[in-house]
């Protein structure tokens, strides 16, 4: 980067917040520790802040979902940043949310640590939102909806990618043609508890893939670095549940091999 573009900004090196220099925020989720970077908010959206600790077993704190009454969630953190180029012109933004999801399962063998359970649950979840949107839109357009109005979302387990985050989990993308690509990262912290990290980028007053700027790659890079700076330390209970799920997976593999 030349000295001049450092001073006045560069449309091909859009500037978001500096995660390395940002303060961090730690929340105690019944002995599971979650730490996230908190760069100063630069986007005009409401602030969401949770207290320093949360009793995650207390269902009263959660909001029940429409999908089914056994699923509920609580807001942990909300933030947002603009991405700026030359002379401070804003080319887009990212909205960021962290939520804790809890499910009251009847089947005791279910665990979010079991990657098959997690993926099946996620496929059901994404279908209940974006699948439903697409079905309604298709109906509105008498079975011939314009492609630009249809969401792209994971429809099979291959679309749910294994996260290389130290705490594990999966991530996927959701998008409408021409709009920013949302990325959702999910990390289990208990057999019935799941953390969700949502990044919603949108270009402002420009096309997403315009050669004028590097908004898609700037935000992709930002999300990657951001997630690398998220740290999760499981509670002893969570750790035990994780080990149990891994053990189960291992033994079912062995059974498969020996039979």
């Amino acid at each position: 980067m030349s000295l001049l573009s450092k001073i006045i900004g560069d449309n091909h090196q859009l500037k978001g917040p500096d995660i390395g220099k940002a303060p961090s925020y730690t929340i105690d989720l019944s002995r599971t520790k979650l730490t996230i970077p908190v760069p100063a908010k630069t986007l005009m959206i409401p602030t969401v802040k949770q207290q320093a600790s949360l009793d995650i077993t207390n269902s009263v704190l959660y909001k029940k979902w429409n999908m089914d009454s056994r699923t509920m969630s609580v807001d942990i953190h909300g933030n947002g940043w603009e991405f700026k180029g030359k002379f401070g012109r804003s080319f887009g933004y990212i909205m960021f949310d962290v939520r804790l999801i809890k499910i009251e399962q009847e089947v005791s063998s279910f665990s979010f640590f079991d990657v098959n359970n997690l993926k099946e649950w996620l496929l059901h979840y994404v279908d209940s939102i974006w699948g439903k949107f697409n079905r309604e839109t298709t109906e509105e357009y008498a079975d011939a909806p314009p492609k630009k109005h249809l969401w792209t979302y994971p429809t099979s387990k291959e679309h749910l990618m294994k996260s290389n985050h130290h705490a594990g989990g999966v991530y996927y993308f959701v998008s409408l043609p021409g709009d920013g690509i949302k990325s959702h990262h999910w990390v289990p912290i208990g057999s019935q508890y799941l953390l969700k990290f949502d990044f919603v980028p949108n270009p402002l007053d420009c096309d997403l893939y315009s050669p004028e700027h590097n908004f898609p790659s700037a935000t992709e890079q930002f999300i990657k670095v951001f997630m690398q700076n998220v740290s999760i330390t499981l509670s002893p209970d969570g750790l035990a549940q994780k080990k149990a799920a891994e053990q189960k997976l291992l033994s079912s593999k062995e059974n498969l091999e020996s039979s």
């Binding site: 909001k63 029940k64 979902w65 429409n66 999908m67 699923t71 509920m72 969630s73 609580v74 807001d75 949310d97 939520r99 209940s128 939102i129 949107f133 309604e136 839109t137 630009k148 109005h149 969401w151 409408l176 021409g178 709009d179 949502d198 007053d205």
Partner: peptide, 23 residues
């Protein structure tokens, strides 16, 4: 330019709000 004025449907899944489409 960009998103046109008009009515857009906004749907909650329980606590998260989603725009149904850009239509």
């Amino acid at each position: 330019d960009g998103k046109q004025p008009g009515f857009y449907k906004v749907v909650s899944d329980g606590d998260n709000w989603n725009l149904k489409s850009r239509d």
